[in-house]
């Protein structure tokens, strides 16, 4: 599936059923950062840039517990809510505003698409 021409501030990336609880899926962005979308066992959804602040490990492949993901490379625990490394580790990965509406997942368009952000800033 290719999402290319959604209108509005929110990008519809499909139904919640595409990500089973405890899992994450990825959303590559041409010209931008790949985004990881998480579904926790408590049925919450979060989106982060798919790069651990430590060594850029793909967070989407980590074990999700509570609202934390453990990076698959070196087991850093990253908060899904804030993107911050927990415990004694330091670092932060950007979060992407996400909302769930009527069973579908939406990401804030301008946080996803880099050129638009750049245009706005200009």
């Amino acid at each position: 599936m290719t999402v290319s021409n959604n209108v509005g501030d929110w990008l519809d990336i499909g139904p919640v059923s595409q990500i089973s609880p405890g899992n994450a899926r990825t959303l590559p962005v041409r010209g931008g950062e790949e985004i990881a979308i998480f579904h926790t066992l408590d049925n919450q959804f979060y989106a982060l840039v798919n790069k651990c602040p430590h060594k850029q490990g793909p967070l989407s492949q980590g074990i999700v517990h509570g609202n934390v993901v453990a990076c698959p490379l070196h087991n850093w625990n990253i908060s899904l809510k804030s993107g911050e490394a927990l415990g004694s580790d330091e670092g932060c990965v950007p979060t992407v505003p996400l909302k769930v509406d009527a069973g579908r997942i939406y990401l804030l368009r301008e946080a996803v698409i880099p050129s638009r952000t750049a245009r706005k800033a200009a």
């Binding site: 599936m1 990336i13 899992n23 959303l27 590559p28 041409r30 698409i113 880099p114």
Partner: peptide, 16 residues
């Protein structure tokens, strides 16, 4: 299969 596939792909207009 979902473990291997991307959820979707975003191609901003300028990249299409």
């Amino acid at each position: 299969a979902e473990l291997h596939q991307h959820l979707a792909e975003v191609r901003p207009m300028e990249f299409v």
